[in-house]
Amino acid sequence: MIEVLFFFEVVLAGMLAGTMYSLVALGFVLIYKASSTFNFAQGAMVFFAVLSFVGFMELGMPFALAFLVTVLLMVAVGYATERLVLGPLTGQNEDTLLMGTIGLAFVLQGLAQAVWGVEVRRLDLGIGDFPIPWVADNLGIFVSALDVAAGVVSAVLIVLLVLLFRFTKMGLGLRAVADDPGAAASIGIPLKTIMLMVWSAAGFVALVAGMMWGARAGVQFALVDLALKALPVLIIGGFSSIPGAIIGGLIIGVVEKTLEVYVGPSFGGGIEGWAPYVLAIFFLLWRPEGLFGEKIIRRV
C-alpha cells in the first residue's frame, strides 16, 4: 500500500512539474501557430522576463506594478523581434529563421545578465514549495503547494488561450495568418497587429512560466537550460497544438520523475538531464508529427 501511494505521489509530482514545462512549451506553440517560426528564444524569454520582474521588485516596485511593467517590457521585446529579426528574414526557409531565433536567444539572455547581474535571486510568490498539510494528513500524499499552484495557473492559461483562439475575432485572424499569411493580408487582416499580439501573449506566458520556475529553483541562468526541455515536450505533443503542449509536458514530467526515482539511484542519478530528449527521439521515429500535430507533407 505504501509503495502504491508512493508511486502515485511520484507520478503526481511528475505531472505537476510537467505542467511547468508545458507553460514554456505553450509560448512556443503560440508563435509557431501564428508564424510557422520555431522560436528557440522562448526559453531565453522566460529567463529575461522573470529576471526583469525580480529586478524591478528590487528597485522597490510593488508586485503588481513590477508585473505590469514586465508585461509591457515583453510587449516591447516582441515588437522589436518582429521589426528587427523576423521582419527582415521573412521568406527565408525555416532553418534560417530558427538560427535567427537562436541569435535572439543569446541577445536576450546576455542583455538580462548584463543589466541585472548574474547572481541567483530568490523569488517569493507567497506559495510555499512544501507539501500541503491537509492533503498529507488526510490522503497520505505529499504534494507541493507550488506544484499545485503551477498546475492551476497552467490550466487557467490554457483555457484562456483556447478560448482566445476559438472564439475571438483576433483568434480567427490569427488562424488565417497561420494558414496563409499572404492571403490573410490581402483580405485586410492586420498582419502586424496580430503578430504583435501573439508575441505579447508569448511574452506574458514566458513571464508566468518564469515566475513559477523562479519560485522553485531561484531566478538564475539555469532556467534557460530547463526551458530547453520544452523542445522534447513539443516533439511529443506536436508544435502546433495547445493541448499537445500540455499532454507532452505531462508525459515528460511523469517519465523523467519515475525514471529518476526508480532507475536513477542505480546509475548515480542525473537521468532527468537526458531522458526527455531520448524519449523525444523514440517519438520522432514512431510519430514525427507528435501526438496532436498536423502531418507535414513536403513536395518537390
Binding site: I102, Q109, G110
Partner: peptide, 10 residues
C-alpha cells in the same frame, strides 16, 4: 559577449 554573438548571428 553573448549579446554581441547573438546580434552578429542575426
Amino acid at each position: 559577449e553573448q549579446v554581441v554573438f547573438g546580434a552578429l548571428i542575426i
